[in-house]
């Protein structure tokens, strides 16, 4: 199945192509892959983050489905 994955801010450096930029890359994933599994495979750092599927909040335990868009946003401090 194909899932578009957008990693924001500092997380964009963890895209497999090594290129900066928040634009989504398409991943070919095995059926049943969860967000948590993908996060582990990408070796994202353990930092505060919020996860969305198709623009709505998602739990990291959720399974991904073909055609979805996953976005991961890490807020940074300051206010």
């Amino acid at each position: 199945m194909n899932v578009d994955v957008a990693l924001f801010a500092s997380l964009s450096a963890y895209q497999p192509d090594g290129q900066a930029g928040r634009h989504a890359r398409t991943f070919d994933l095995a059926a049943g892959t969860t967000i948590a599994t993908l996060i582990a495979e990408l070796k994202l750092p353990d930092q505060a983050r919020v996860v969305f599927i198709d623009g709505r909040h998602a739990e990291e335990s959720a399974a991904l489905h073909d055609g979805q868009r996953l976005a991961i946003f890490p807020p940074v401090a300051g206010g």
């Binding site: 930092q47 505060a48 919020v50 946003f73 890490p74 807020p75 401090a77 300051g78 206010g79």
Partner: peptide
């Protein structure tokens, strides 16, 4: 409009 990243993430979550 808070300061810390973990609190921001909690609020957004």
């Amino acid at each position: 409009a808070v300061d810390g990243a973990p609190t921001k993430a909690m609020i957004l979550e």
